[in-house]
Design a protein around this nucleic acid. Structure first.
Lengths: 143, 143
DNA sequence: CTCAATTTGAGACTTAATCTCAATTATAGA
DNA sequence: TCTATAATTGAGATTAAGTCTCAAATTGAG
């Protein structure tokens, strides 16, 4: 069931081999969902497939990104993080403490259509991030 | 003139000392403007102030980010990149080759108002990125 | 001009990401 | 089912990014 639409299945459809390491990475992404760093994916993936190597994690993340199934985000972090790319992701990021909040609403459809045409681009997902100061950090600001 | 609104001046207003290294970093950001990595900022900054150190570049970038004057973006790169944070930045990023296009239009004002209230957040800028396949990479896709 | 507090540079250090290549594995076809 | 081959992998070396420390230098208030 989830197999038909799952990340691993999508890899196969795209012509890539369905290997155990890839299935492990895909499963981690699907289970944990949000905001995973490559390191976290590696650790969790090894609980499923112990021999999983770091290189394979990066390679699989690249493949899934190219296919538009996941997407990197920035979260005030040293390392890249990934989210599954169903439609869009929307964050409110505090530039002081790094706290991140999510929200849902966003009407980018019209813009997507315009841009696709203008740049001959095939858009598969988007990221909308607002930067500012959160409730806690706001009072500490000097400016 | 530009001094009054310049990044260096804003640092001073916020209570930080106005030092040569900081002015060099600020000048680079203002001149070059877009999509600079810390490494590039370091190299260009040393043309202005040769003793400039990597640590100071990162420290100054952090300060400017906290003040909401610049903002990190993701561009299919290993390193973090920064842009001046005047309002919003909008990119179309190809997940295959990493090419990035910019566009202007974006009406986020309404959303900003809603979010500010709901999360008690003080939003100072935003980033809107669309991910997909560019004109050149599109034909190579299997999916 | 003086002095305290901030800021800096150099380089060590830590962590993230990439690369290489021999060994392994998936899968199409016999 | 078995085989051949092309894709994929793991381990670890390597490179690059980012952080940290501390003595020395600098800013700016008084």
């Amino acid at each position: 069931m989830s197999d038909l639409n799952g990340l691993a299945a999508r890899l196969k459809v795209a012509g890539y081999k369905l290997t155990a390491p890839r299935q492990a990475v895909a499963q981690v992404l699907e289970q944990e969902g949000l905001h995973l760093s490559p390191n976290e994916i590696l650790a969790r993936g090894r609980q499923i497939y112990p021999k999983l190597s770091r290189a394979t994690v990066y390679r699989t993340l690249d493949l899934l990104t190219e296919l538009g199934l996941i997407r990197p985000i920035y979260l005030h972090d040293a390392s890249q993080r990934y989210v599954t790319a169903q439609g869009g992701h929307h964050h409110l990021v505090c530039t002081d403490c790094g706290a991140a909040f999510e929200f849902e609403q966003c009407d980018a459809d019209q813009l997507v259509a315009t841009l696709s045409e203008r740049f001959c681009f095939e858009v598969h997902s988007h990221l909308l991030e607002f930067y500012g100061h959160c409730e806690i950090c706001k009072p500490n600001q000097l400016s």
